[in-house]
Amino acid sequence: MSSLLNQSASLIAFVRAVEAGSFSAAARNAGTTPSAISKAIQRLEAELGAKLFRRSTRTLSLTPDGQAFFDRVAPLLRGIEDSADAIRPKGGARGRLRVSMPSDLGRLLMGPITTKFLATHQDLELDLALADRHVDVIREGYDVVFRVGTTVESELRMRTLAQLDMALVASPAFLRQWGEPRSTQALRELPFVRYLLGGRPLPLTLEDGTTIVPRGRIGLDTGFGLRAAALHGMGVAHLMKCTVQADLDRGDLVQLMRNQHLPSLPLMALHAFGKLTPVRVKLLSDFIEQEIQQPSIT
């Protein structure tokens, strides 16, 4: 074991080669040569007594032993880097950042993330999954996820970034056919674009505590889909107001029941790093907290 621990440079070279997909790409990222990466991995293979890669002139793939070793070593190496990153007093975001956020929030923030955040942090690689489902942060290997709504996951560290206003919206064509509701009962009788969470329609709760289980011909599992269906006159949609503000301003959608205040929902950042939050996670969370408050978005 002690001799393997002395192979730290070889361990890093191995993980970087797997992540980069080739010795040459790993060498470019590390500022060294493909030959140095290859020799480091050869030393590691000699120490382990096993082949880690299948090598050919065009491809580089892991052997079964290599895959098993990578699955064990990569999280350990990343944990060490994250711990060092968390206690570093200052510096920019760097490394790989795996993120999940709701689809419509991603649509809204994609411009600022690409033109501001990534432009500022040149050493950062961002993997962004736009999905409304509640991903498993730990099992699926996400650094941080952003969710709208309350959640209870004791093993995760949570931070509330904002309280988001909600809105009931429908297209002008839909309202010409069905009429604009003036009461909760009238709203209840309208067809909705149903938001599906875990395959079931998510109930809508009004300010007075009244709960409506939406009914309608179409159910969708993303805010992006709900907005599109509402724009095409399929029904009333319950959405984050910031994601449809431009549609409201253009008159493509109309806000319903404006005298009935809807409960706001928290925008939360969740991660599994505990108190040692990596700098890249903190900086992205800070950035989204700031951007979501901008007048152009809210």
Rank of each mutant, 00 (worst) to 15 (best):
L5V: 12
N6T: 08
N6P: 00
Q7R: 12
S10Q: 10
S10E: 11
F14W: 10
R16C: 08
A26F: 06
A27S: 01
A30C: 10
G31K: 08
T32I: 14
A40R: 11
R43G: 01
R54C: 08
Q67L: 13
F69P: 03
V73H: 01
R78I: 07
G79A: 13
I80S: 08
A84P: 00
A86D: 02
G92L: 09
A93F: 13
L97S: 04
D104C: 10
L105A: 01
L109M: 15
M110D: 12
T120D: 10
D123Y: 12
L124Q: 02
L126W: 00
D127K: 12
A129I: 11
A129L: 15
D132W: 09
D132C: 08
D136T: 03
G149I: 11
T150N: 15
T151D: 14
R159E: 14
Q163W: 12
A173H: 11
Q177L: 06
T184N: 06
Q185R: 11
A186G: 09
L190Y: 01
P201S: 07
L202I: 10
L204G: 03
L206G: 03
G209W: 15
V213Y: 11
V213C: 08
G216H: 02
I218R: 10
G219S: 06
G225W: 14
G225R: 09
A228H: 09
A230C: 05
G233K: 00
V236P: 02
H238W: 13
L239K: 03
A246E: 14
R258M: 14
H261W: 05
L265W: 09
A269W: 03
L270E: 09
F273D: 02
G274E: 01
G274Q: 03
P278D: 01
V281M: 08
Q290F: 05
I292R: 10
